[in-house]
Each structure stands twice: as C-alpha cells, then as structure tokens.
Amino acid sequence: MEAEVRVFATLRRYLPELAIGEAKIVQIEPGTTLDQLRECLDLPAEEVKVIMVNNLQADPDDLVSDGDRVTYIPAVAGG
C-alpha cells in the first residue's frame, strides 16, 4: 500500500527534491505507524510538532492506511 506525504516550512530541508506542496508517494507495509513513516523519511522527531492525516490532527502512534494524505509540520504560527 502507499501513502502520500507532504512536508512544509523548515521540514522541507529534509526532502529538498519536492516542490512546495508536492507529495512524495511512499510504499509502506500494513501496520506502519506515522512515527515509523517519519523515521523512514529521515525527518527528525524533535522537529515534527504536528502531524495531520487527511486534514485531521493525528498522533505519532496512529497507523497509516492505504491512500492516506500525511503531512508533517514543524513549529509554525503567525498572525
């Protein structure tokens, strides 16, 4: 199965080949958690502040499902 992964802001430094907002399609085994997926992509745990799956907040221990839209987000805020 596969998931599409997006990273934004300072996390883009770890996947520089992606254009802004472009998704990386990742093949995953059933039973993979969001944290394990992050690990595969070499995104440092301490830099991931929020994870979203299909536009909803998610936890690192949640399992990834086939076709999920996964987004890793660093510290952001604004005004």
Binding site: F8, T10, M52, N55, T71, P74, A75, V76, A77, G78
Partner: peptide, 27 residues
C-alpha cells in the same frame, strides 16, 4: 530557544506566511 522564533526557525525563515500551507492542510 523556541523552534518557531529562533534564528532560522519558522517565522524567521518564512514569516507568518509559513501558515498558508498548514491552514490549507487543516481545511
């Protein structure tokens, strides 16, 4: 010290507009 406000952190690198993609992602 904070990741958001430190040098080369989110605000310093991208400004408040660092939020555009994120708020979009949140719907």
């Amino acid at each position: 010290q904070h990741d958001l406000t430190k040098k080369d952190g989110g605000l310093n690198s991208y400004g408040t507009n660092v939020l555009m993609n994120i708020i979009n992602e949140a719907g």
